[in-house]
Amino acid sequence: EDAPSSDDLEQFAKQFKQRRIKLGFTQADVGLALGTLYGNVFSQTTICRFEALQLSFKNMCKLKPLLNKWLEETDSSS
């Protein structure tokens, strides 16, 4: 699987934040939901840093598919 470019990540982080707010979730909600869904709880700080593009590139790449999946799950259930 190709690693996303930093442009991709930036684009995704923006879209993710907009969708999250529109769906009415806090950063902490998302962190907990990831724990429920995938067994990895993320702190509010981590989600905040992801949205602000302040995580390392490697961590951004790791989180992106999880957050993407969460969006898909959340979209389909709302």
Rank of each mutant, 00 (worst) to 15 (best):
K22R: 11
L37P: 05
I21Y: 14
L63W: 03
S5N: 14
E73R: 10
L71C: 02
A52H: 09
G35T: 15
Q11M: 08
G39F: 00
C61T: 05
A33S: 10
K14V: 06
M60G: 02
S76R: 13
G35R: 12
E73N: 09
N68L: 13
W70V: 03
T26A: 04
K58W: 06
S56H: 02
D29R: 06
E73I: 06
I21T: 07
K69F: 01
D7Q: 09
S78G: 14
K64Q: 12
D8W: 01
A3S: 15
Q18K: 14
G31V: 07
P65N: 07
D29S: 07
D75H: 15
R19K: 15
V41L: 09
A13V: 11
S77E: 12
N59Y: 01
N40M: 09
L32Q: 14
P65I: 13
Q11C: 07
P65F: 08
G39E: 06
D75Q: 14
K22G: 06
L37M: 14
L23E: 04
N59A: 13
Q15D: 12
Q44F: 06
S43C: 04
M60C: 03
A13N: 09
T74C: 12
L63V: 06
L32N: 05
T74P: 05
L53Y: 10
K14H: 15
D29P: 03
K64E: 03
L67N: 03
A28G: 10
D8T: 04
L37D: 06
A13M: 05
L53A: 13
P65Y: 09
L67C: 05
I47K: 01
G35F: 08
K17P: 02
T74R: 12
N40T: 12
N68S: 12
T74N: 15
F12R: 03
L55N: 08
A28N: 07
L23T: 02
N40H: 08
P4F: 05
L32F: 15
T45C: 06
M60R: 01
L71D: 02
T46Y: 11
A28Q: 08
P65C: 09
T74W: 08
D8C: 06
T36P: 07
F16N: 02
G39A: 05
Q15F: 09
L23P: 06
L32P: 00
S78F: 08
T36E: 14
D2N: 15
S77W: 08
S78H: 15
T74F: 15
M60N: 12
F25Y: 14
K69V: 03
F50D: 00
K22S: 09
R19G: 04
S56Y: 01
L67G: 02
T45E: 15
Q18P: 00
L53V: 11
L67K: 01
K62A: 10
Q18T: 11
L71E: 03
S6F: 15
A28D: 06
F16S: 03
S78I: 04
N68P: 01
Q11T: 13
L63D: 06
Q27W: 08
S5D: 15
Q44L: 04
T26Y: 03
D8K: 05
N59D: 15
S43A: 05
K58G: 10
D75M: 05
P4H: 12
V41H: 15
F50K: 00
L23Y: 01
D29V: 02
Q27K: 07
L23K: 05
K69W: 02
E51Q: 02
L34S: 01
A13P: 04
F42M: 12
S78E: 11
T26G: 04
W70S: 06
F57I: 07
K17L: 02
S76I: 05
N59M: 13
K64R: 12
P4M: 13
T36K: 14
N59I: 08
W70E: 01
A33G: 04
N59G: 11
N68V: 12
L34R: 01
M60H: 00
S5H: 15
Q15W: 07
T46E: 12
K17Q: 13
P65S: 08
N68T: 14
G31C: 12
L34T: 06
R19N: 10
E72Y: 08
L66F: 11
Q11S: 12
Q44W: 03
L71T: 00
T74L: 08
R20I: 00
Q15T: 10
K17M: 07
L71Y: 00
A13R: 06
N40C: 10
C61N: 07
D2R: 15
T45M: 08
N40K: 15
L34G: 01
K14A: 13
R19Q: 08
F25D: 01
V30W: 05
C48S: 14
F42E: 10
L23S: 03
F50A: 01
S78Y: 12
L23I: 00
Q54W: 02
L63S: 01
N68Q: 12
